[in-house]
Design a protein around this nucleic acid. Structure first.
Length: 219
DNA sequence: CCCCAGGCGTCCA
DNA sequence: TGGACGCATGGG
């Protein structure tokens, strides 16, 4: 009997097919997008990314020298633009002074994760998204959709923290960046479609048949 | 009008 | 250590 973590993956892949993540072209775009999409709809991030692309500013060296006011204006559609412009520029400066992405690709995964987490504005999900989708490291990304799905299906007790959820998946799956890439994308797809907040469990969800480990009203 | 979106840092008990 | 709160635009 395969672990539930693998069965869920197979079920979602059969239901939705490959999601083709990350929806960006280059590692630079993935990193910038990961920061801009924090608590923000991807359509809004696309507008901001488009502004940067048109001006050939998807480039950490250029971003690190950009006027604050201009950067704020360009990323305004992605929300929290004052915070995010400051954080993006700060990130660009730090990457540039590390020798660009070339200077990071050789770093061991855990050391690179710590390096990312030191940056103001990069927390566990953003760091892990960058590790997985920009550097192809086998790190399982947890997000609000994943926590909601796990809680609602009774796979983890609520409330569950980031590290606990990450371990629940990672400990039962092969450390395969292609698997983790597709799995996270499928969970986001599932969450958007079937696991909206403040709504009862949806019986048409492809995952409806999985047995809860933690009953809905215990612990 | 309301709620929501692929979080995070800060503050405070 | 953990829960509230502010951050901001755009879509349904």
């Amino acid at each position: 009997m395969a672990a539930i973590q693998l069965q869920v993956y197979e079920t979602l892949l059969a239901a939705f097919g490959p999601q083709g993540w990350w929806p960006a072209e280059t590692p630079e775009e993935v990193i910038i997008g990961a920061l801009l999409t924090q608590n923000t709809a991807w359509d809004n991030v696309e507008k901001a990314l488009g502004n940067l692309r048109r001006r050939r500013l998807v480039d950490f060296e250029k971003l690190s020298g950009l006027r604050d006011e201009l950067l704020e204006e360009l990323i305004r559609p992605s929300g929290y633009f004052r915070q995010k412009s400051r954080r993006l520029k700060n990130l660009a400066i730090k990457i540039t002074s590390a020798g660009g992405l070339r200077g990071l690709v050789g770093m061991p995964t855990l050391r690179l994760r710590d390096w990312l987490l030191e940056i103001n504005g990069i927390g566990p999900e953003t760091a892990d998204s960058i590790l997985l989708y920009a550097f192809a490291r086998p790190v399982f990304v947890i997000d609000a959709y994943t926590l909601r799905i796990c809680g609602r299906h009774g796979w983890l007790p609520e409330p569950t923290g980031y590290n606990e959820a990450q371990a629940w998946f990672s400990d039962k799956l092969p450390a395969d960046s292609d698997l983790f890439n597709e799995y996270h994308a499928l969970l986001v797809r599932t969450g958007k479609e079937f696991c909206r907040p403040r709504r009862p469990a949806c019986c048409s969800c492809p995952l409806a048949g999985f047995t809860p480990i933690f009953a809905p009203d215990t612990i």
